Amino acid sequence: MRRLAAVAAAAWLMSYAAASAAGPRIVSMNVCSDQLVLSLADPDQILGLSRFSRDAWQSWAAEQARNYPLLSGEAEDVLLLKPDIVVVSLFDKRATRDLLKTNGLHLVEFTVPRTLDEVRDQIRAMGDVLQHPDRARAEIARLDAAIARARAAADGHHYRVLPVERRGFVAGRSSLISSLLAATGLRNAAGELGLDAGGFASLEAIVKLRPDFILVSEAGDRAEDEGRAFLLHPALERFYPADKRIVVPERLTVCGGVMLADALDRLTEELKRVTR
């Protein structure tokens, strides 16, 4: 359903965007679509980005985003900009989306991808919306090459990997992280905990599971809050020291997009480190 929605939206907007030789002027209201737009658009096509676009912890393109105006998240500033296209997500407020539509703006909605195939579809769809399909094809090729490198680093070992976040949250079998691991020949051990959509796992359950590695978003020994302290618990550090931890920054995996190529290259480096 997500795949069909993204493709249908792109097909509808292709005919609209084709009327502008310079490419449509665009506003993005979501941090994930921000990164797609920044990767594929010409600079003068971008009129504004979401209020979270400069947050380095969740945006791979935070520095690049500093070159563009920030939006408030409300409809008023978008209406003043008069963009050709507004990119939104289903997480943006319905009232805001409805108001923009009522005022005649063209909206395209991108959902949250859960698989690498859906990521490819969204990159392709955004390339069509922005009239840069060649750039989208290049980014998809870069993603596929990164997958191949990570698969080679995994070397057919089919390691069991458990993605563990702050406070013990585990990304489930139907998550984008799980799809990323599977594409490289690794296996998300969350299924052994009965977690499909994801959920919290106790310290005891994680220790008892004994995956080959845990996947975390940061290294280091500082706990600035209780969420981070969970990952530094003595029991976890005993069973999962540095050589049992694969570290991939959250900003590379929180969204589905071109940054996943960088996430996979980081995964490749980490696999080489922990298996040498």
Results as ranks from 00 to 15, higher is better:
Met1Cys: 09
Arg3Phe: 09
Arg3Tyr: 10
Leu4Phe: 11
Leu4Thr: 13
Ala6Thr: 11
Leu13Phe: 14
Met14Leu: 13
Ser15Asn: 11
Ala19Val: 09
Arg25Ile: 05
Ile26Phe: 01
Ile26Thr: 11
Val31Met: 07
Leu36Gly: 05
Val37Trp: 06
Gly48Thr: 05
Arg51Ser: 12
Ser53Met: 09
Asp55Met: 12
Ser59Glu: 03
Ser59Phe: 05
Ala61Gly: 02
Ala61Thr: 14
Ala62Thr: 08
Glu63His: 08
Glu63Ser: 11
Asn67Asp: 14
Pro69Glu: 07
Ser72Glu: 10
Asp77Ala: 09
Asp77Ile: 10
Val78Trp: 05
Val78Gly: 03
Lys82Phe: 03
Lys82Cys: 09
Leu90Lys: 11
Leu90Gly: 12
Phe91Tyr: 12
Phe91Glu: 12
Arg94Ser: 13
Ala95His: 10
Arg97Tyr: 00
Arg97Leu: 00
Leu100Gln: 00
Gly104Lys: 08
Glu109Val: 11
Asp117Ser: 14
Glu118Met: 09
Arg120Glu: 15
Gln122Cys: 04
Ile123Ala: 04
Arg124Trp: 12
Arg124Phe: 07
Met126Gln: 06
Val129Met: 13
Gln131Ala: 13
Asp134Gly: 14
Arg135Gln: 13
Ala138Glu: 15
Ala138Phe: 02
Glu139Phe: 07
Glu139Ser: 11
Arg142Asp: 09
Leu143Ile: 07
Ala145Tyr: 00
Ala148Met: 04
Ala150Glu: 01
Ala152Ile: 02
Ala152Asp: 13
Ala154Pro: 01
Arg166Met: 12
Arg166Val: 12
Ala171Ile: 01
Gly172Arg: 08
Leu176Gly: 01
Ser179Met: 04
Ala183Lys: 04
Thr184Gly: 01
Gly185Phe: 00
Arg187Trp: 08
Gly191Ile: 03
Glu192Met: 07
Leu195Ser: 02
Asp196Val: 15
Gly199Asn: 03
Gly199His: 04
Phe200Ser: 10
Ala201Asp: 08
Val207Phe: 00
Val207Gly: 01
Lys208Phe: 06
Leu209Met: 08
Asp212Pro: 03
Phe213Gly: 00
Arg222Cys: 00
Asp225Met: 08
Ala229Tyr: 04
Phe230Ala: 05
Leu231Asn: 05
Arg238Leu: 14
Tyr240Ile: 05
Tyr240Asn: 03
Ala242Thr: 09
Asp243Pro: 00
Ile246Tyr: 00
Val247Thr: 11
Pro249Val: 08
Leu252Pro: 02
Leu252His: 03
Cys255Ala: 08
Gly257Gln: 04
Val258Arg: 14
Val258Ala: 15
Val258Ser: 15
Met259Phe: 03
Ala261Tyr: 01
Ala261Arg: 02
Asp262Pro: 00
Ala263Phe: 07
Leu264Thr: 01
Asp265His: 01
Glu269Gln: 10
Arg273Ser: 01
Arg276Tyr: 07
